[in-house]
Simulated scan of single mutants.
Amino acid sequence: MKKLLVMLALPRQEIEAVLPDWTLVYPEGELFAQDELIDKVRDCEAIITVYGNKLSNAIIDAAPKLKMIANFGAGYDNIDVPYASSKGIVITNSPDPVTEPTAELAFGLMIGVARRMGEMNSRLRQMDVTWGVMRNLSTTLVGKRLGIIGMGAIGKAVARRAIASGMEVVYHNRNKVDSATQEALNVSYCSFDELLKTSDVVSLNMPLSPETKGMIGLEELKLMKSSAYLINTARGPVVKEQELIQALKTGEIAGAGLDVFENEPTIPDELLQMDNVYLIPHLGTATHETRGEMSTLVAENIKAFFSGQTPPNIINKEVLV
């Protein structure tokens, strides 16, 4: 019977339903300690890793039978892909279930920060609100321009929501989407600098890579309107966090909605104290439904590979050559 190590206590029922003949090695608590992982992984053929939780190369080295790493999440920067590939280990991710909930949350952050919902919720609970027709004013998104950086599946899903809510949408991507898709979404392409200069809201929806790490810093934030908002549901390190704090303090931008942070779970005190920053703890895909769908897809990737098929979400196809 093949053995699968699950790094974190993910929904078990969905995984067992797809892999009934496998032995599942689960942590007793929420997750394994590093020394436990090295001990438990020795005779495992596959590992389910989880975004935001580093899989060290020492763990890979401790698993001589390891043939597959199935990542729970779209992003896989928690895995040293070149190192695993050099050992002939197949890597997959689970992108499809994350699209709609992440886009939903990104749009929620836009509304939350522009309409001052987080600030007003906190102040109301502290009985620190003065009521009145011309008090507590905020900004509507209707008629505003949304600039999306990263027009993959999530970026497209954000665009659909924005258009339906009466916003204009422009985007910047490494490659333009095809004209039929642009027309269907009612979006237009513009340069990176133009997007920053003209957008009322900038939504970051790119993967984390050497090219995108630190992509948004003080120089880029200074290009934005002083009335604009930055939304990040991508990865924390795509933004230079201390430079964002500086820009918020000096009024270079009006505010930010952040689901991700540069050094999670640590959040700078300056961000925690700012009324114009809407903060949530990496909740992009955190719904009951999505967690179940992701668990099923991760298990289906494993089943496909060990059945002699190419997994639908393989990252490193070159190892199969």
Rank of each mutant, 00 (worst) to 15 (best):
N121P: 03
L137F: 11
V133P: 01
M120Y: 15
L137M: 12
V142Y: 15
L124A: 10
G143V: 03
L141A: 05
G155T: 13
V129G: 07
A157E: 10
G147N: 07
R135E: 14
R135L: 15
G152S: 07
M151H: 14
G152P: 09
R123V: 10
M134A: 02
T140Y: 07
G150C: 10
E168V: 06
L141R: 04
G155R: 14
L124I: 12
M151I: 12
M120D: 04
T139M: 10
R145P: 06
S138Y: 08
A159C: 06
V133K: 13
V170T: 10
R123T: 11
M134G: 11
T140N: 07
V170S: 06
G132P: 04
M127C: 11
V129K: 13
L137Q: 09
T140F: 06
A164N: 00
W131Q: 09
G166V: 01
A164F: 00
A157G: 08
T139K: 09
R125Y: 08
A164D: 04
I148N: 06
M151P: 03
I154Y: 02
N121F: 13
A153P: 02
R160M: 12
V170M: 05
I149W: 04
L146S: 01
G152R: 10
N121V: 02
T130F: 10
V158C: 04
S122W: 01
Q126E: 15
V169D: 05
V170N: 07
V169H: 05
E168M: 10
Q126R: 14
G132F: 09
G132C: 11
L137A: 08
G132T: 12
L146P: 02
R145T: 15
S122K: 15
L124Q: 07
G147W: 01
M127V: 09
V169I: 05
S138P: 06
T130Q: 11
M167L: 14
M120Q: 07
R161H: 09
V133W: 02
L124V: 11
M167S: 02
Q126T: 10
R161Y: 10
R161A: 12
